[in-house]
Nucleic acid binder design. Structure first.
Lengths: 220, 220
DNA sequence: GTTTAAATTTAAGCATTCCTAACTTAAGAA
DNA sequence: TTCTTAAGTTAGGAATGCTTAAATTTAAAC
């Protein structure tokens, strides 16, 4: 049974592994968790001894099957809590992450299954991220496109929002964007590649940088 | 901001202080938390230095105002979670304690206020224990009597159940006893001072020892 | 192919929280 | 009032998880 700290490292490494063509380095993990490289180096060795990581000194690391299972277990708890906080307690996108970050380490399997049942076995969290089931299996992902690639004139449904900052999340909340919202692509300005979308009765110009955090599927 | 461990000590001391005519000793705390007396002695000194306790070596301890405030803060979180787990997720009496024991240390003030609001600012937890408000004020307590003192022939409403064991809690759940349930006192056997109560259509003989965990107010 | 800079690991140290064992104090029995 | 024992404290040690500083390895520049 890993400690809170170990769960944080394992989760971080799992997330860093998702970037293709790049093995995970000590520095990557240290930056992500905002701890020293020395602390990371130590911890990585301990996790390796305990079978969560494959690791060769100076050569980067990768999670073992055991490590992946543990990571998905933490991620499941995190995402179920996020969904619960948004759907039941009405927290906003920007409010949930910090709370879930703590709760994910303080929730028994028993309680998580009860929450899961209460939420009717959800497959995606409020940001559209997939929730692993209790065996660690991820649901199939929809075939989304990011907003800069959505075609003008068509309608799309929002299925994923990457949470890069509180400011951005609050902005999305403010303009009424939420998961499964249907928006119309009004136009795209070639000048800066920004996109004008219509949400309800209002239109908004979304810069390319912001738009790259929004993922849609065509609404048919 | 006290650590989890410190919160546990402060809460334990608060609870031990509630027994009248007895100052709290190192041994009391050590037994309650199931740690060594040495660990307790050390921690008590640290808590005293940090202003949570009044403490003189070999002379027992008592919480300062600061300590009491901290204890009530933890207790508030614990009881709100217990109520939530029972009322919303449908956990049983015996299931909630262990979960709340962890969650009480992992919940921000912000989240607790949201839970409190969701539960409509409850005054009592599922065991009938009072929930301190966010300023640490306890609600006024009803004037309960324990079951062995309830009068035969009268109806009473259950307002408090002390959770001495899982077995007992499960038994209460099984016979349909829950907070605010109205029961009729059918008779009392002088042989062993047990009480026969009617819950719904069924009657049960409750031994004096068990009965002393149940507290009622007369139902008018 | 060296040299140098960046990445990584090791070393030394600190805080927290626990343990067991040894010692000290207090309090009740004789 | 002294003696004994129970209660309480100190000492020494371990695990976790972090820090900064020093040493080492790798990799990239020249």
């Amino acid at each position: 049974m890993p400690t809170i700290s170990k769960e944080d490292y394992i989760k971080a490494i799992y997330q860093l592994e998702s970037y293709p063509d790049k093995s995970v380095s000590t520095t990557d993990v240290a930056n992500k968790l905002e701890v020293s490289k020395a602390a990371t180096s130590e911890m990585v060795q301990r996790l390796s001894e305990q079978g969560f990581l494959n690791y060769e000194k100076y050569r980067g690391m990768s999670l073992t099957e055991d490590g992946k299972r543990t990571a998905l277990h933490v991620i499941r708890r995190h995402r179920i809590w996020e969904l619960f906080l948004v759907d039941v307690l009405g927290l906003t996108w920007s409010e949930v992450h910090a709370e879930a970050e703590i709760l994910e380490h303080s929730t028994s399997d028993f309680l998580i299954e009860r929450l899961d049942k209460y939420l009717r076995h959800p497959k995606f969290d409020p940001h559209g991220e997939p929730i692993p089931d209790k065996y660690g299996n991820l649901p199939e992902l929809p075939d989304w496109v990011s907003l800069p690639k959505c075609e003008v004139g068509k309608s799309y449904r929002l299925v994923k929002v990457t949470d890069s900052s509180k400011e951005l999340m609050d902005y999305f909340t403010e303009i009424g964007l939420s998961l499964n919202k249907v928006v119309m692509i009004v136009s795209r300005l070639s000048y800066d590649n920004s996109t004008i979308i219509q949400v309800g009765n209002d239109s908004f110009n979304i810069s390319e940088k912001i738009a790259s955090n929004l993922f849609f599927i065509e609404d048919v």
